[in-house]
Design a protein around this nucleic acid. Structure first.
Lengths: 229, 229
DNA sequence: ATAATTAGTGTTTTTTTTACACTTTGTCAA
DNA sequence: TTGACAAAGTGTAAAAAAAACACTAATTAT
């Protein structure tokens, strides 16, 4: 294709902040860099946008390639354009964040000969480039969003207990919530459907399992309902 | 500078959705295109990111050049990367939105030999490229943001009446608000300082003027206060 | 059987939000 | 000068939402 516009063209990359929930703790998926610059340091998964590829597709591809992560919730976060973010030349990066059910992805994390590992999102190792800024912004965004949109469920397995759900909110928001008030509110949501199943897990009373019904949620939403937690 | 990375390089632009408030109505600033493609159609102000220029700076520059708009509130919105957004070649655009006090900018809007005009944000003319999508997203973002962060004040003159403030919220949110409840809440905010001045404006009782104290707001915010309307 | 551990459950108080109508202060015109 | 007009300004009561709070139930391991 001819270069119609004669202007400087910064390289364009995408980076992804992939969050997972391990027990009560929020984690991020990081990749060990095999090449300079920042060789040996940890970084967010990401890479160059290819010819004819939308930004969303670029992120999906990179996540599949570098981390074996596929078909997960993903949303654009922010575009980072500081002139010296990459020590070699100008690289503008469109950052995304993704929420995955860690149980499904923990084993497949390592692919592509690179080392990929989960780290505590709040206390990551030193990161390459401006990835610490990106991570911080993703954390802020997640915290801001989780209360107004039911995205948190993306971090849980399909079937989950109310205690798991509460722990999720507690760890993302960094607060502690009252169990009774939490359950009262959450059980008022029609899109949380109780299953005829329980989770036996240690020497104590088994917990009822629930499922998040996406379809019902969107239909309620169209009727003017709006989620808040 | 050597091209260290050998990858396709889409052209990179910035676009800005500039909102202003005219009477009770929310407006957008549009520019008539002088060149193909979409010659003669209305479009968002914007242009190419220059060598060594951050994204924020690029938007500021374009706004100053194309619309005489300077020193206003501005925030990154989203990055649009559809492959065919520009009919000629791939162009990725980082969109921003800005809030201006329309009274200060209405006259200077036309500069640079291009025609720049304010249009109702809710019912704009047909727009070039995917600018209608960008505008829609900016509207959604503004609506979402205005209740949690005191950004609305950016749309008002420095001194304003509570009725103006209420109208601002009514037109951005598209609802009507109860006067007494609105004033009760708003007057509880320490960062709204009443002036020893009134605004006489037609055959009726003059209204007291107020000012938004940015400094006080940020200091309150640090003490854990959080704005909500 | 009992000790240990997490699941599960309601009520009261406090706070926040909503609904609602008249008086005040100025201008303009008769 | 006075009366009509128009927007500014003001408080209370009812309803809804949020917060505080502690015990019983079900299971497993010893």
């Amino acid at each position: 294709m001819p270069r119609t516009y004669e202007y400087p063209r910064p390289a364009l990359t995408v980076d992804a902040v992939v969050f997972g929930l391990d027990g009560g703790e929020l984690k991020v998926l990081l990749i060990e860099r095999g090449l300079e610059p920042f060789k040996g340091q940890w970084a967010l998964p990401g890479g160059f946008v290819q010819e004819g590829e939308t930004l969303d597709r670029a992120v999906s591809r990179e996540l599949a390639e570098e981390a074996g992560v596929q078909g997960v919730f993903m949303e654009q976060l922010y575009t980072f354009g500081a002139v010296d973010r990459d020590p070699r030349e100008r690289v503008v990066s469109v950052a995304y964040y993704a929420l995955v059910n860690l149980a499904d992805h923990t084993t497949r994390a390592s692919t592509d000969a690179v080392d990929a590992r989960w780290f505590p999102a709040a206390t990551p190792p030193p990161l390459a480039f401006d990835h610490a800024d990106i991570l911080q912004m993703a954390l802020d965004r997640l915290r801001g969003k989780v209360r107004w949109q039911p995205v948190g469920f993306e971090l849980l397995p399909e079937k989950f207990t109310l205690t798991q759900l509460q722990q999720l909110y507690e760890s993302v928001l960094g607060t502690s919530l009252d169990k009774r008030n939490f359950r009262k509110k959450v059980l008022g949501f029609d899109f949380l459907v109780p299953l005829d199943e329980t989770r036996r897990d240690g020497p104590h009373r088994p917990a009822q399992l629930f499922r998040f019904d996406h379809g019902r949620y969107t239909s309620l939403q169209r009727k003017g309902f709006h989620f808040e937690l």
